[in-house]
């Protein structure tokens, strides 16, 4: 409540002040906060995801995953559980993550053959998720405070107009120096992100499409495509079966719950 009040005040104050008085950094942050605010209150959801990996030579490989997410309360970050269904040799493997706004995320991987829960070192978060072009850090909840921002310009994107802004990861172990985000002004949905690596060269581009609205409020992407410009490899995420308010609770996001993820 206090957070919402603060945001309302921020929006109020920023609209009272003359537009010229707002710096590009403030405007970038304001956009990120507004996008975050619009995503608030979803409670929980479950979804299925198909991951399609393609190499430069055209080799293809598919993975099927299920994702469960619980919205964080009282300033806590979201919690997520990802369960692997295919390929068969990783079936039953599950990843639990607790995101935190103010410190490194906690992540645990469950290996079903050994019944062992292993902690993932936070530096590994720039590492590839399941051999895909998505890093662990691309898959986690994008908390506002994990970045600083800078608004660049408005630009048409399809039939809509997008804000174009940069965000700079605060995590020193991030694989990126900056990300350029295209977000539409109508619904604050991400359409595209350019990722720049530690050497400041363009590493990857994410294209997000087929957004659908759930509970007459929340927009979720149906298709995400990540292209790695340096390796030519591509990963597509195809989302389906979104279900909101399925009754997930904290007990579904513990190390115990990893051991019974199926």
């Amino acid at each position: 409540m206090r957070k919402i009040l603060a945001i309302v005040l921020t929006v109020f104050i920023s609209s009272v002040c003359l537009a010229q008085a707002q710096t590009a950094e403030e405007k970038g942050l304001e956009i990120a906060r507004e996008a975050d605010r619009r995503g608030e209150g979803f409670g929980d959801y479950e979804a299925s995801m198909k991951m399609v990996l393609s190499s430069r030579r055209g080799d293809r490989s598919e993975r099927d995953l299920r994702v469960r997410t619980l919205e964080g309360k009282d300033g806590e970050g979201d919690k997520g559980l990802t369960i692997f269904d295919t390929p068969a040799d990783v079936r039953g493997t599950a990843l639990l993550s607790w995101s935190h706004a103010d410190r490194d995320d906690d992540q645990w991987l469950y290996l079903p053959a050994l019944k062992r829960v292993k902690t993932i070192a936070s530096r590994s978060q720039s590492g590839a998720f399941m051999g895909s072009e998505f890093a662990f850090e691309d898959m986690r909840a994008q908390e506002v405070d994990k970045y600083t921002y800078k608004y660049l310009r408005d630009e048409p994107c399809g039939e809509l107009t997008c804000f174009v802004f940069e965000r700079y990861p605060q995590d020193k172990y991030s694989g990126y120096t900056r990300q350029v985000v295209w977000m539409d002004q109508a619904e604050y949905r991400v359409h595209k992100i350019d990722y720049y690596d530690r050497k400041q060269s363009l590493l990857k581009t994410l294209s997000v499409s087929e957004h659908s609205q759930y509970l007459e409020r929340f927009w979720q992407p149906g298709r995400m495509e990540m292209v790695n410009h340096q390796t030519g490899k591509t990963t597509e995420l195809l989302w389906s079966d979104y279900q909101f308010n399925t009754g997930l609770s904290e007990s579904d996001f513990t190390q115990n719950s990893l051991m019974r993820a199926r």
């Binding site: 070192a121 530096r123 590994s124 720039s126 590492g127 590839a128 694989g175």
Partner: peptide, 14 residues
């Protein structure tokens, strides 16, 4: 201890 170096030698290997 276990120390992890992600993206070894500029590759995607850890």
């Amino acid at each position: 201890f276990e120390f992890t170096q992600p993206g070894l030698w500029g590759t995607g290997m850890d």
